[in-house]
């Protein structure tokens, strides 16, 4: 029995800036990190393993260029048992349809999966589509924005899902895909032992020929969507700055909102 976390390595978008003169992305100092939401998926896989008496095997799977290996090693350092990297030039340029197809093929090959966890979305693309997409390819149910796992048995899971005006309690038949939010847990730091293991552990690498997939459905050629234009949004500039006594400041806000017809 396996609990799988699918993760993505992303540029740390908090460091991505636009150069105001050339209007291009400045990538100096942009590190690659594990997508923050996927950290909660990794952590929950580890917690569920503990909760289930250490029985299930925990696995992380990621698709991307070879340097994604560092992200997988970070997951092993946290305590994940096994890491699989899906890397092949044929996978490059995948949109969410091709990505979820490729990931689902790897999950099928791995087999014996009970639960698949992923972050609610990746911070570079913000699409939130790959988790539900994988579920559809596998023909299993999916629930998103999970903030609590109440109960898990061999063939059923009861979860709390965050909605816009509250939450839903839901029962899903297993296997299932869950995408998770920050409220679920607090990711642990890697232990020293984990870090040592992460250095030595072998990362399983699968490419096109390992997966038994249809080439026409991979990468750029298997992606229905296509980016035709990339541009910078008009830069947001600071407006008026005011400093005065509290009464004047309050009046200033009131007058400004009135003028702009906001109240």
């Amino acid at each position: 029995m396996r609990i799988i976390a699918i993760i993505k390595q992303v540029p740390d978008t908090t460091n991505v800036r636009i150069n105001p003169e050339t209007n291009t992305l400045m990538r100096e100092g942009v590190e690659s990190i594990i997508n923050p939401f996927d950290m909660y998926a990794i952590e929950e896989a580890l917690r569920l393993k503990e909760r289930l008496g250490g029985e299930p095997e925990t696995v992380v799977i990621s698709m991307g260029p070879p340097q994604v290996e560092t992200a997988l090693r970070d997951a092993i350092a946290m305590g994940i048992d096994k890491a699989i990297l899906l890397s092949d030039r044929k996978f490059a340029g995948s949109d969410t349809l091709a990505t979820s197809y490729t990931l689902s093929a790897a999950i099928k090959k791995l087999g014996d999966y009970q639960l698949i966890l992923a972050g609610k979305q990746a911070i570079d693309g913000d699409t939130a589509q790959v988790g539900p997409g994988v579920a559809t390819w596998l023909g299993i149910p999916c629930s998103t924005y999970i903030r609590k796992i109440e109960e898990i048995t061999k063939d059923e899971i009861i979860i709390e899902r965050l909605m816009e005006t509250g939450y839903d309690r839901i029962s899903l038949k297993l296997p299932a895909v869950l995408t998770v939010v920050k409220e679920l847990n607090e990711p642990r730091l890697p232990s020293l032992r984990g870090k040592m293991r992460a250095k030595k552990e072998e990362i399983i690498k699968w490419g096109f020929s390992d997966l038994g997939v249809e080439e026409s459905m991979l990468g750029l050629n298997g992606s229905p969507t296509q980016v035709v234009k990339i541009f910078s949004p008009p830069p947001k500039k600071g407006g008026e700055k005011y400093e005065g006594n509290p009464t004047d400041s309050a009046q200033k806000i009131f007058d400004c909102l009135k003028t702009n017809k906001l109240i």
């Binding site: 947001k236 500039k237 600071g238 407006g239 008026e240 700055k241 005011y242 400093e243 005065g244 509290p246 009464t247 400041s249 309050a250 009046q251 200033k252 806000i253 009131f254 400004c256 109240i263």
Partner: peptide
């Protein structure tokens, strides 16, 4: 936050907001 604010007020919110509420 002042770099993107249309109106920036430098001051103590605990003093300004009660005043703003009064005006409203």
């Amino acid at each position: 936050i002042f770099d993107i604010a249309d109106l920036g007020i430098v001051g103590d919110l605990h003093e300004i907001i009660p005043e703003f509420i009064k005006i409203l």
